[in-house]
């Protein structure tokens, strides 16, 4: 049911049946390592290219989510997934392996919540009994496509971020004990003219703010409704800008509940500059760390605002600015 201008309320209360998070060696060294279902020490996963490795990460996340839910592949009515590779090959190739009806999505790093929002809408509308939503990214594959070769010696600025290697997947179904997916706010594309691909946080912060504002306006909710509001991958720079921007727009958000998946995943590691990024950043932190806290009862109501920078290597070489988007999904125990 549409509420306000851009928010969907799922009145049939779809359930987040099961979820899984898979990570690489760098994620294993981070503070959230205990929340991953599986961690690999090799970024190649025994494959002969980074792209194939990313596909394996995604396949494993889906297999884990399906198995943890006590299901079989054949039970899934629709698979929704997105990633950062050209023509979303990781998703399409993983869908080839899984062999269920598939809808490919692209929202850059916002694909994690884009897929969850669409999966919940399909289940809510009774178009699927079990919908699988997933997203993946791979540090080396993303560097190769968007920036420079991994071994190239270019100095990165302090605003740069580190793409998460891994994948997250969730199975949404129509009945169960919860946690429930209660609403989703679909974001608008916001472009504030930032064209530096080493400053994604700064580029994406206004999109996150726009979606958060829309969510609370559409639902007429107070900011204290949620126990946690987590943005996808704004990093240190973007998180600070978003906090200040919200304050400037009259939304004084409590620092204790407002966080960012890109800040959580690597802690204070200096090697990642401003923090984590990539589709797997919000996907693994949400489906691993945050959902574990929900299951333990530490968190009751959460809002995940996955942010995405919709640029291509071609568009930034042609000096275009970076259009950004953010999608919000609320989960309540």
């Amino acid at each position: 049911m549409l509420k306000g201008h851009q928010t969907w309320i799922f009145e049939n209360r779809p359930v987040l049946h099961s979820c899984a998070a898979i990570g690489g060696p760098f994620e294993a060294a981070g503070p959230l390592s205990a929340d991953f279902d599986l961690l690999h020490e090799d970024i190649w996963l025994g494959q002969n290219s980074f792209e194939k490795a990313e596909k394996r990460f995604l396949e494993e996340a889906c297999e884990f989510a399906i198995r943890k839910g006590g299901l079989k592949k054949e039970d899934i009515n629709v698979f929704l997934s997105g990633d950062l590779m050209n023509q979303i090959i990781s998703s399409s190739f993983a869908a080839r392996t899984i062999g269920v009806p598939f809808l490919g999505l692209f929202g850059a790093c916002s694909s994690s919540m884009e897929s969850l929002a669409v999966a919940s809408a399909l289940v809510n509308g009774k178009f699927a009994k079990y919908a699988l939503a997933a997203a993946s990214s791979h540090n080396a594959a993303a560097e190769k496509q968007f920036r420079y070769p991994t071994e190239y010696g270019a100095q990165k600025p302090p605003t740069a971020q580190w793409t998460v290697t891994g994948a997250g997947a969730a199975v949404v179904t129509d009945s169960g004990d919860g946690p429930y997916i209660t609403s989703a706010t679909v974001g608008r594309v916001v472009d504030m003219g930032i064209s530096d691909p080493f400053n994604m946080g700064g580029a994406m912060a206004p999109a996150a703010v726009d979606t958060i504002q829309a969510h609370f306006r559409d639902l007429n909710r107070g900011l204290d409704y949620y126990d946690m509001i987590a943005t996808g991958d704004l990093g240190k720079v973007g998180h600070r800008i978003a906090t200040d921007l919200l304050t400037e727009h009259g939304l004084k958000i409590n620092e204790d509940i407002f966080t960012d998946c890109g800040l959580l995943i690597y802690g204070d590691n200096k090697q990642v500059f401003a923090g984590g990024s990539g589709c797997a950043c919000s996907a693994t932190v949400t489906y691993g760390h945050i959902m574990n806290r929900v299951k333990k009862g530490e968190l009751k109501k959460i809002l995940i605002v996955a942010t995405g920078a919709l640029l291509s290597p071609m568009s930034y070489q042609q000096k275009e600015s970076i259009p950004c988007i953010a999608h919000a999904v609320s989960i309540e125990a």
């Binding site: 504030m192 400053n199 700064g202 912060a205 600070r240 800008i241 401003a274």
Partner: peptide, 13 residues
């Protein structure tokens, strides 16, 4: 956009 860039610049390392 110009206003935002100045806003963001002040918050970037």
């Amino acid at each position: 956009q110009q206003q935002y860039q100045a806003f963001a610049k002040a918050r970037e390392p």
